[in-house]
Amino acid sequence: MQFVVCIKQVRDVAAISEMLSHAPRSVAIKTEEMMDLLEKTPGMMNPEDKHALEAALQLRDAFGGEVVCVSVGREDAISALKEAMAMGADRAELWTTQELDVSGSADVLATIVKERTQADLILCAELSVDASTHQLPALLASRLGMPYLNGICDISIEDQKLRVRRKLPEEIALYRLSLPAVLSISPHANEPRYPSVMGIVRFSGEKIPAQIRVEAAPEEMIKGKFFFTKTQEWTLLDNERDIEWIACEDADEKADQLLKKLNRRGIL
């Protein structure tokens, strides 16, 4: 069986917030400045994707077959794909583009899946930590005409049918789906493995390994589907609060002070 995993190279959100930490708050930023900032920010594999990859690796080990990673985005996504290879994926396909919006990404990924894979099952993360639109798997599934279910914790396959456990705050349930299908994997489904030492040795360095195929996405496919648009306005959010330190000597006093202050604020 072929298990396809969608991998996204995201901007390192912690690094961005660090870079922005000295900028004045609640101030508008021009779209060009925002593009520039993202350009400069280091990338990393979307951490949530690792749960999808781990699920795929476990399924391959149980049912046989291969794990193929697919990705769309800037060329630095190669580093995320190298990491996926080091974790145990068999091969990867990257179609390079500028930053696309979620429907543009779904269009390109659907084309990669159709033209470069024989997917039996497509696994995605529940969200990407940078754009967090929560909809790529659903859009991808609709373009491929496959069923889609989210919040998946457990997967088993019997007679070309999927049996999955869905766990969300409002529902714990077992569902049956036909293959091929798209699933998004709950962050609580598994504990992703670390890349193996052998894997790191094999897939580090400048060279693009033969298992990762990189090509440019066709222009006409991505026209008008960019993440950045002319109508956007960006503002830095002020999330910091003025802190009051409870600075007494011993723990008893600190506890006492804190509770008194909370009482006075009417919270307790």
């Binding site: 609060r241 802190i243 009051e244 330190w245 600190k254 006492d256 804190l258 509770l259």
Partner: peptide, 24 residues
């Protein structure tokens, strides 16, 4: 975490929390 806090206590949990429990 202190950047987003309204009140900050620099202390060991195992000292302050039992003291809070005792007072409450």
């Amino acid at each position: 975490i202190f950047q987003v806090a309204d009140y900050g206590v620099v202390a060991d949990i195992y000292d302050v929390v039992p003291a809070m429990i005792k007072k409450l």
